[in-house]
Design a protein around this nucleic acid. Structure first.
Lengths: 116, 116
DNA sequence: TCCATATATCCAAAATGACGGATATACGTG
DNA sequence: CACGTATATCCGTCATTTTGGATATATGGA
């Protein structure tokens, strides 16, 4: 993931409807959600949602797979991880001490055995 | 940091000149860089840089402090951490198992005692 | 006060992005 | 093949963003 890829991904997420769409897809992992149902969930027209999904897909953040008449979209969590890692490399590169609090925060919120 | 704040921050970083500016500021922590020198570094006109810095500042990602005639800008790493955490909460919320690989990757790249 | 330096603001032009109606394409069913 | 459903593409409109010239504001020095 180079800088251009990262900017494409950030641009994709820097819009309310797309952010909501992506979050909905993350919550529905690993089942996925058909495009039409996403449009209803976010309450935007079908063609607008299709355009947003195309932008998210171009950024690598979602993938659509045809299942009969529907196209089921799924979030690509590995890609999200790449984006987050890219951002944090700006922070950690060469000076790991800066990110210790971040690691701690993430560990406490995201490790299976953690409470908070 | 709510969704609107996150989108403001993502929008601020989703532009090449601003991304380069922010990375330059991170690399110059904690000294900071005057606005004019930033413009020369990124090779854009002074007023354009000023506008970009205003956007980054509005997003909370940088802060400028007047020092004599210059205004020294610094990256706000805590804010960057908040943005990254926001993104990752989409991933980790309610299902921590998804983020275990991410934690591992971050730990290996960002923990003081780590090699890679 | 007058001048030079450093930065911000004003303004307008060009580019980009979001939106949604209308229509095309893909798929399954009868 | 004809029809209904699901999604994508086309296209015009409107709003936002980016950019940079000109100018205003702030600071320090003579």
């Amino acid at each position: 993931m180079d800088t251009t890829d990262a900017i494409t991904a950030l641009t994709a997420l820097a819009q309310m409807s797309r952010m909501e769409t992506f979050r909905a897809l993350v919550q529905h992992e690993p089942k996925g959600v058909p495009a039409g149902e996403l449009a209803r969930l976010i309450a935007i027209p079908q063609n607008t949602m299709s355009a947003h999904l195309a932008i998210l897909a171009r950024a690598g953040l979602v993938r659509g797979e045809r299942r009969s008449r529907s196209i089921i979209y799924r979030a690509d969590l590995a890609r999200l991880r790449e984006v987050a890692t890219f951002l944090l490399k700006d922070c950690c590169g060469g000076r790991s001490e800066i990110c210790a609090p971040l690691i701690a925060e993430l560990t406490s919120c995201c490790t299976p055995g953690a409470s908070k």
